[in-house]
Amino acid sequence: MTGPLTLESIAEKMKEFGVSEQARKNRIRVTTTPDKVHDTIRTVQAMFGFDRLITISAVDNTRTLELIYHLTGPHRIIVSIAVELERDQPAMPTIFDILPPAGIYERQIHDLFGIVFTGNPNMKRIMLNEDWPADEYPLRKDWKPDPDTFYGGIKGERS
């Protein structure tokens, strides 16, 4: 598999989906838009055999919510596909249909960041307690726990 497949060729191909750069050895980072994620993943899957989803990471960088899909395959190259979403009412098409393990990661992100993955058949509350308030997402940067509520809160961390 590794013969003609080089980092450069993959990076070159990925240019059509957005900004593509070679981050460090064996890593490619592609920045794209939400509507192209599905196509990008399909393309890397079909053309270069990226059949394994390592994880989906969500980051709140205070301006936007960022989703990063990490994929790898038998050639040991990791491609990270990053997209940015708006902070209010973030929505994202699911990739559950092409990569079944994504279901778990998507629901986890939904719980902690409030990103809705449209098309995921099972978007129930999973990680937090049953009586956790519906519109509070603890891993967002601006989330501050209410010290009076039942769920305690992060007590003053010394800096």
Binding site: I54, T55, S57, V59, H70, Y105
Partner: peptide
Amino acid sequence: AHFIRTNGTDRVERVDIRTPTL
């Protein structure tokens, strides 16, 4: 897999832990 993002301070901006069990 640990996805780590730093922002120039002495703490991480985000660490996302993907465990094998998951």
